[in-house]
Design a binder for these strands. Structure first.
Lengths: 242, 242
DNA sequence: CACATAGTACTGGACAGTCTAGTTTGATTC
DNA sequence: GAATCAAACTAGACTGTCCAGTACTATGTG
């Protein structure tokens, strides 16, 4: 009764899209004096559509969004929208997967390196604080709400978000913890479990609040700082050297 | 552009509904031999509609649900649906608020009493285990997804879920912790923070997984038991008597 | 010229909510 | 037990609106 979409990277959509995209690429993007790419008209429109659609999907959800609105907001005719994206579904999937990847990379790249000399608790505190700042943005929280609300219609998208989001973060963390344990800085039996404990001591409370109470509930920086420190102190009590 | 609904317990909807309900009540519900209430036709239909609508809303979301489907599934004419509920919106709000309340009460009533004699860690472990079992059900996880997905359309519903769910649980927990601290069983500065740490050490990882990976990711009982113990052991390391 | 785009009308289908005409239920009364 | 009556109900047609996706013509643009 209610369609269930799956990501289908070698299926019809992707193939058709591929053909269209290669069409794009025949015109070589000219290079701007400053060195930045000077997007031609088609590329500008493409981006305008993506930007507008992102906004609308995040705000209204998949079903709550209509293509006429996207066309109007991107100042483009509806026909042009369909020239660039095969369907509403394809547009949605592309936007969400792309946002998830970008966000996942940003979270990942934000990880500071541990300088052997500093205090471990302080390092972890900064780490936690950075993660909180990157994750607790309206954009990311809206994305999370959107994907969670569409789990039954787009289960693959949620899986991707899980893997490029919390799972990836916790695996990176676990790898770090394993090193710290090796060096005798932490006492850890299972680095994966310790990573989960760390991650959720830090993230769970504010993320849960913002998910339900809205972006207005995003805490201020000093509150995040304190929150990070409190979480880390519990973590250190359990996993620090006795 | 996109309607935003608010809960309006003394507004038009409620008043109209009240009139209709009093009509119901003129006919006194007859008493079954066994002592259970024998619902008359109207009450049976009312419940059938609620049950069907619950199923469909949880599965397909608010916009993904249509009233014809609800009528068909409850084996009732569409007119009857509108006799019992003023609108799709009213039906949705009633279902969600009612589920949230029922679930909140169930979680709350599941709290065991601490017998002074037993081991505190063991008690907390059982406590955590019970909460996990009650919360990690398909129904509750679907409800959570539904409400989160509708935050921008129905912000009040999400607020209610937050308050009757995690907030209430953590406040009960904090009250308990304050007593334990008083008795010298735990070392706690701020019971609310300790409660948040406890709650999320236990709940965050599985809830997050199930929210994104679907109800198939609900862990088995023995895994929940282990998970509860691991969370509690971290908690005790931080807040137990040194 | 070739191709992308604008603008706009159109198709086909879905859906919330209403309307109507007739039927069922169950309590009351004779 | 039969007649009566009001409220609840069914079935399905109907309205008005919304919307994904298409068609077509005219207008830029490289």
């Amino acid at each position: 009764m209610c369609q269930r979409y799956t990501l289908d990277p070698i299926g019809n959509h992707a193939r058709v899209q591929q053909l269209r995209v290669s069409g794009f690429m025949t015109k070589v993007t000219s290079i701007h004096p400053a060195g930045t790419a000077e997007p031609n008209r088609s590329e500008r429109k493409h981006k305008a559509i993506l930007d507008a659609a992102t906004e609308v999907f995040l705000q209204n959800g998949y079903l709550g969004t209509n293509m006429d609105d996207i066309a109007a907001r991107s100042a483009v005719s509806k026909q042009t929208v369909y020239k660039h994206f095969e369907s509403k579904e394809a547009l949605f999937v592309e936007i969400v997967t792309s946002m998830v990847s970008v966000a996942g990379d940003r979270v990942h790249s934000q990880i500071p390196e541990f300088q052997g000399s500093e205090d471990l608790a302080e390092y972890l505190s900064n780490y936690a604080y950075q993660q909180l700042i990157v994750v607790l943005t309206p954009r990311l929280m809206q994305l999370r709400r959107l994907v969670i609300g569409e789990v039954s219609r787009f289960p693959e998208l949620a899986k991707v978000l899980y893997e490029r989001g919390p799972k990836r973060a916790m695996m990176a963390l676990a790898a770090n913890f394993a090193v710290f344990a090796e060096r005798g800085l932490l006492e850890i039996e299972d680095p994966a479990i310790a990573a989960s404990h760390f991650n959720w001591l830090v993230m769970a409370e504010p993320v849960n609040q913002v998910m339900l109470l809205g972006d207005g509930a995003i805490p201020k920086l000093d509150a995040l700082r304190r929150h990070a420190e409190q979480g880390v102190s519990v973590f250190m009590a359990a996993y620090g050297r006795k």
